[in-house]
Amino acid sequence: MSSPLENLETQLEMFIENVRQIRIIVSDFQPQGQSVLNQKIQSLVTGLQEVDKLKSQVHDIHVPTEVFDYIDQGRNPQLYTKDCIDKALAKNEEVKGKIDSYKRFKSHLLQELSKTFPNEIAKYKAIRE
């Protein structure tokens, strides 16, 4: 059983193939090709019906509009995914760095505070525990 996306992909590919074939038929039209053309036009309608049927299966898939911008500019949309992953990773590392720094700062602060205010820090630690 293929996934809904694969089904949609196959249907769209078949639809595109159908259009391509219609283009070939009409680019140098022969009178005997009329019945084939009619058949192809009907299969276009069938193809659209099939795609329409599949829409319920992919309604929960969200696509960022930026991806469309990439496609409209004739660029590979995977570049967008790569860019997002790179940015997410960089941000993740940056935040981890900050958290680690704060942790070090906290332990250092506690250490220094316990030297200066030993009683208070002992109380503090008791509450924390």
Partner: peptide
Amino acid sequence: FNGKKLKESLSSFLPNLPGIVDGPG
């Protein structure tokens, strides 16, 4: 995505699509 260098053009993502697809829409 990190391992390989991705090609810029849309046609490299959709190699089966007939016609020219790399130009701006």
